[in-house]
């Protein structure tokens, strides 16, 4: 299996994502934003950071870079794409995921460990976890406040597209455990087909105990497990 990690100008978690994939013992390559070649990657990661300085809106400019045209095609063909933090913002701006990520309700940049609950494990990116698992993972963002129309939030719920919710350390979904004002405590969602996933917390920053938590490994292990189960990970 080969990971492709996209580097935009201003990406700053690309090396963390690279290191996490390496930790799994998998092949991984960087994909430059100006390139139109996914280099045969089986799974694409859009990493965290501040692509194009977050000018205009977070993710709004990155969406038009040459590599994104390929990523959109790759996603539409059913291959797995994971957007982390700024990568999530790029995915909503490019229309691969519904909704918008607005300024945090308290207007501050938050950088700390939080807890998220895995809402379902029948997805490529959560297959190694159990539904209800509580993951301790850091956030680092100012624009992570998930917004959508109430009817669309209901549709996300109904279609099982909410994969991660902010919770307290015991898994309770409470207003206090919501770090940014996201509707329905949403921390991560997938598209209808399930192959495109975005989340604001940083699993790649929590893959070894020395980093404060290794819970983020669940997401990387899930990719590996899904491949072993023969999900649609190999490029045709």
């Amino acid at each position: 299996m080969k990971f492709g990690v996209v580097t935009f100008p201003g990406s700053n978690c690309d090396y963390d994502a690279y290191a996490a994939a390496k930790l799994l013992g998998e092949e991984v390559t960087f994909l430059w934003h100006q390139s139109s070649d996914l280099q045969g990657a089986d799974v694409i990661i859009l990493p965290g950071g501040f692509s194009y300085g977050d000018y205009l809106r977070s993710g709004a400019i990155a969406r038009f870079s040459p590599i994104m045209k390929e990523v959109v095609e790759f996603a539409h063909a059913g291959f797995p794409v994971l957007g982390i933090c700024n990568g999530f913002q790029v995915l909503v701006e490019s229309g691969l995921l519904p909704g918008a990520l607005m300024r945090n309700d308290h207007l501050r940049f938050s950088c700390r460990f939080i807890h998220i609950r895995v809402e379902r494990n029948d997805n490529i990116f959560t297959a190694a976890a159990s539904t209800g698992d509580i993951l301790k993972i850091p956030i680092a963002h100012k624009d992570g406040n998930y917004y959508n129309f109430t009817a669309d939030i209901d549709a996300l719920e109904k279609n099982g597209q909410i994969l991660f919710r902010y919770c307290d350390s015991r898994g309770n979904i409470t207003p206090e455990s919501n770090p940014n004002g996201s509707m329905a405590n949403i921390a991560g969602i997938c598209n209808r087909e399930g192959n495109v996933v975005g989340l604001m917390p940083h699993p790649e920053r929590a893959v070894e105990d020395i980093l404060g938590s290794s819970d983020g490994l669940q997401i990387f292990n899930s990719i590996k497990l899904s491949l072993a189960r023969g999900k649609k990970l190999e490029r045709a």
């Binding site: 205009l56 709004a60 038009f64 909704g99 918008a100 607005m102 917004y147 959508n148």
Partner: peptide
């Protein structure tokens, strides 16, 4: 497509 995000 660019200047406004039609969702919000």
């Amino acid at each position: 497509k660019l200047l406004a995000n039609p969702v919000i």
